[in-house]
Design a protein around this nucleic acid. Structure first.
Length: 303
DNA sequence: AGCCAGGCCCAAC
DNA sequence: GTTGGGCATGGC
């Protein structure tokens, strides 16, 4: 990948892969710690590092600590090395619904996020909406995360470590307003501390069923949260998290009952296989942001 | 105002 | 093995 490093301003100029859409990637609900600046760029924190990233057509500008940090971290975080053209082609040819989803949302990249952060974030996500999830997580980071100063002297907070969360008094978490999820978060953090964060990261190498079983041993982790952690944090790209929106879409597009989790999972495995996770992200973004049949039937008055 | 939100847990069937 | 109520809170 061709680079151009501006050492005076610590800005790296990189060519974006074909079709890459920074804004959609960061705003599609897979991550919760990026915010859009007034100039349309995004600032966020991942794995203890901050970045400001801007996209102008096929050009990406990374405002980061050093040139090495791109190759060493951000390139992988944004999954810029993967051949998405092949994935999009394959999915688009599956059926007309997928073709529309790929046309609309094919600019999304599935970020390679930290498994621990993903685990806690998606425990918090249950029965909440995306703005609320972001607030809860920011609140946790401000209360328990290490401070980071970026190149411009702005202060940020890393995501809290398992130790910081797992050993804090319950009362301190109360003001983060997690609701009934705070117990799940604290108990899960304590268990990650016990098992070691390495055990969680090692689930990347486990067969899917074993990784899922391990994740579901944490309180507050059911089938959907486990799938999200596997897809967004552990590189299990064959996972197809089925939240209320996806179940709605599967009902409208493929005739499933919304309650038929097994059927939906089997369909995704059989039809999309190792690309199921990408299919899921494209579908999710598509149905949430377009006037599709899914939204038309939301109120139960489809005709 | 009231319904719903990137669900999970647990008790009844 | 499936189904349904309860859950703590805030966005819209």
């Amino acid at each position: 990948m061709d680079h151009e490093w501006d050492s005076r301003n610590n800005i790296l100029k990189v060519a974006a892969p074909p079709g890459f859409d920074l804004a959609m990637t960061l705003e599609c609900g897979q991550c919760f710690r990026w915010r859009r600046e007034g100039d349309g760029s995004f600032t966020g924190v991942a794995c203890g590092k901050t970045a400001n990233v801007a996209q102008s057509g096929r050009e990406l500008l990374f405002s980061i600590g050093s040139a090495d940090e791109f190759e060493g971290f951000w390139m992988e975080y944004f999954d810029l090395g993967r051949d998405y053209e092949h994935i999009k082609h394959t999915l688009a040819e599956h059926d007309e619904n997928m073709r529309r989803a790929v046309d609309y949302a094919g600019g999304i990249r599935i970020l390679r996020q930290d498994p621990w952060e993903t685990l806690i974030s998606f425990i918090i996500s249950q029965n909440a909406n995306i703005p609320r999830i972001k607030k809860c997580i920011e609140s946790l980071c401000r209360a328990f995360g290490e401070q980071i100063t970026d190149g411009r002297g702005r202060m940020w907070h890393a995501f809290p470590t398992p130790e910081a969360l797992g050993s804090c008094p319950e009362a301190d978490v109360d003001h983060c307003r997690l609701g009934y999820r705070s117990g799940y978060v604290l108990e899960t953090a304590a268990k990650v501390m016990e098992d070691g964060a390495g055990a969680l990261a090692a689930a990347r190498m486990l067969p899917g069923a074993e990784a899922e079983a391990y994740l579901r041993s944490f309180p507050g982790v059911g089938p959907k949260v486990a799938d999200c952690v596997m897809l967004f944090g552990l590189g299990h790209y064959d996972r197809f998290p089925a939240d209320v929106w996806i179940r709605r879409a599967m009902a409208a597009f493929y005739g499933f009952r919304e309650s038929d989790a097994r059927g939906i999972a089997a369909f995704a495995a059989a039809e999309f296989g190792p690309m199921a996770g990408f299919a899921q992200q494209f579908l999710f973004q598509y149905i949430r942001n377009t006037d599709s049949a899914v939204n038309a039937s939301k109120g139960g008055s489809a005709c």
